[in-house]
Nucleic acid binder design. Structure first.
Lengths: 210, 210
DNA sequence: GACCAACCCAAGCGGGCGCTAGGGCGCGCT
DNA sequence: AGCGCGCCCTAGCGCCCGCTTGGGTTGGTC
């Protein structure tokens, strides 16, 4: 992807291109990136496969555009929440709600990120995925650490282990989340936070667990 | 796959075949099923691609063998644990330990199951994956329900939602689990259970936990 | 009304894919 | 000694993949 000399940062693209990115994203999410052919994408967009290359220079550019847009969007939301100055537990709750909210607004992108990350990140072109993931990790762990220091969160499990636990369970829920299902993302987030913060047991285990 | 008329149930295969299944599984796990070519598998096995077809009739047969072996193995472990007659919370803890234990013994199969399930299950040939998943789901939920009835587990969050949280966070940990890392699977399972059962929040100042 | 840029089509190229056909080699058995 | 069989090789087929090339059509602009 060559940089645009006129608008080097803000990457303006046509509405049609954004449309195709969304269409391709849906296909990538359901049948996987490698299993999706450019002809299938073109079919879904109502054009021929060759015409895709008026908008993109390669199939990789499509998934790259999908990932960049998504990561930029959710990155902004995270930093907004984290810099709100609320107490750590409140901030954590807000972060969880942002993450589950992405299930509704960017379902395809979340699924693709979850399914293809490990493969894509092996190629230099997609190293920006790792950058975004690591930045997110630092942001969450900082909140968790603050919560542990302030006393709102337990301190006997390392913050990075808790973070992985959180992240995994949230993102993987894209596998069973249905936009037309009974539960709104916020309701799922609340259920999740109930178990996460309160614990599954009715009372704290009296015997030592380890 | 044609059934063997002599041993219709117990599917005996050569040691070489099992070896190749393991090799292919490692490749499927790291770079994805669709991104792995039969030539790469053959290379890793030290033979030529055509020679693979002495052992398998297709590339699909390889991943099918990998999945069948794994699901059969862990299915046995689950039913053994569930029918041990222990109290629900103890049974739940044992189930979690079995699942994390699979990270060490069948890392590749777990990763492939996690990454390729959604795509594979769309084809009739791999409907056995759905069967196994649903059977596992019933088994876990039964334990959770028993725990809720007995009073050991909280009842204000539906069992199936709790199960999904559990399952997802456990299996996805294959993404960051490293067999040569500092933590053994049992230690990870204990950390996990601590957060899961006890909750992340500090409730009524825990004087005896410090 | 000439022009341009944005889109799209028609046709197909080169390459890598999964898979096949037929033959060679060595080990264990009788 | 002779044979069968498990295992692998040599050589390559046919298909579908991502992508290219050159040209046609349309709507907005001056």
């Amino acid at each position: 992807m060559t940089a645009d000399p006129v608008t080097p940062d803000v990457e303006f693209v046509s509405a049609r291109r954004a449309e195709i990115v969304a269409i391709a994203g849906e296909l990538f999410a359901t049948r996987g990136y490698a299993n999706t052919t450019v002809r299938e994408i073109a079919d879904a967009a109502g054009i021929l496969s060759g015409s895709l290359y008026h908008h993109f220079d390669s199939k990789e550019s499509m998934i790259e555009a999908l990932m960049r847009d998504f990561l930029e969007d959710i990155g902004h939301q995270y930093t907004t929440v984290a810099s709100a100055g609320t107490d750590p537990v409140t901030t954590l709750r807000a972060l969880v709600h942002v993450a589950f909210g992405a299930l509704a607004t960017d379902r395809a992108a979340v699924a693709v990120m979850l399914n293809e990350y490990n493969v894509l990140v092996q190629y230099p072109r997609f190293s920006f995925l790792r950058d975004a993931v690591e930045a997110t990790e630092r942001l969450w762990i900082e909140v968790l650490d603050a919560g542990m220091r302030a006393g709102g969160l337990r301190q006997d499990v390392p913050a990075d282990a808790v973070y992985r636990f959180l992240r995994d369970a949230i993102w993987v829920s894209v596998r069973w989340y249905r936009p037309d299902g009974p539960q709104r993302p916020d309701a799922i987030a609340d259920d999740y936070l109930t178990v996460l913060l309160g614990g599954l047991a009715t009372r704290r285990p009296t015997r030592r667990d380890r």
